[in-house]
């Protein structure tokens, strides 16, 4: 534990703990939520819009569902949206950037022009357009955001590779007759991946914010699945008189996004100055 604090700092460790807590809540939501069936969407109209109390810690929404249970179930969607958007983006961007940077020439030109096209559009606008075209649903909104995000990773991976390609140890491998595929995978990928993974950790926060924005606009998950962005939108009609409906999911988004951002910063500080 003290080793972790030394590596990530106090703030980083606290944020890691927060993220782990949210992850556990998401994983074990059916067991941890006080009213699992309400968390999954069953209305409870006899207790509409109740303020926070001993029975409903975070109050209830316009269908009488327990706010805490909804937030806990909502963690599943937000967590997976944040992580999957970044994962998909990395999965496309890293190989594209690697190939463009290592082989250069027309492959580089072509791939970089494609990323230019994507980067020319405001990311959120593009995601909204795509999500609207694909239709609502969790997976569709994740794909829509990932499609607008991967070019950043491709750019970053390419920049890393351009530096690494000139490193004497990469040159040495090439002079020894090591195949190009092996050079990329064995010597370039591990070094190029590290800063990208740090960036990915930093990006989980903005990713889940973007996903929440799509939900807020009605382009995310379908009701009755709990989703923080959607919940904020639903509570908007009752704000500020019944503030808790929006506040609980809003604060949850804020905390999780902040936690990923601080953790990413801590990782980056650790990585800083450690160039091969």
């Amino acid at each position: 534990m003290s080793g972790l604090v030394r590596r990530l700092g106090f703030g980083g460790t606290l944020c890691l703990a927060l993220i782990v807590t949210f992850a556990l809540l998401a994983l074990f939501a059916p067991w941890l939520a006080p009213y699992p069936d309400q968390g999954m969407g069953t209305p409870n109209v006899i207790a509409k819009l109740k303020p926070p109390s001993a029975t409903f810690w975070l109050g209830t929404d316009h269908l009488g569902r327990d706010g805490l249970s909804r937030v806990i179930f909502g963690a599943r969607v937000s967590m997976s949206a944040g992580l999957l958007i970044v994962a998909f983006s990395l999965l496309i961007g890293l190989p594209v950037g690697l190939l463009a940077g290592y082989f250069g020439g027309w492959a580089d030109e072509a791939l970089m022009r494609v990323t230019d096209v994507f980067l020319a559009f405001p990311a959120l606008l593009l995601a909204v357009l795509l999500a609207a075209a694909l239709g609502p649903g969790l997976l569709n909104s994740i794909v829509a955001v990932a499609v607008t995000w991967w070019p950043w990773y491709a750019r970053m991976a390419r920049a890393e590779v351009l530096v690494l390609r000139g490193q004497p140890y990469v040159e040495a491998a090439s002079v020894m007759g090591v195949s190009q595929g092996r050079i990329v995978i064995r010597h370039i990928l591990p070094a190029a991946a590290r800063p990208l993974l740090v960036q990915a950790a930093l990006d989980v926060g903005p990713a889940l914010l973007t996903a929440s924005s799509l939900s807020f606009l009605g382009l995310g998950v379908l009701p009755p699945t709990a989703d923080w962005g959607k919940m904020v939108d639903e509570g908007r009609k009752f704000f500020p008189d019944r503030w808790w409906v929006s506040a609980a999911p809003g604060i949850a988004i804020f905390l999780l996004a902040l936690a990923f951002s601080v953790l990413g910063d801590a990782l980056r500080d650790r990585e800083g100055g450690k160039r091969p």
């Binding site: 490193q167 004497p168 140890y169 040159e171 040495a172 491998a173 064995r186 070094a191 091969p276």
Partner: peptide
């Protein structure tokens, strides 16, 4: 190469 720490994969 000149600098072994640069020419050996870290």
């Amino acid at each position: 190469a000149q600098n072994p720490f640069l020419s050996l994969s870290p």
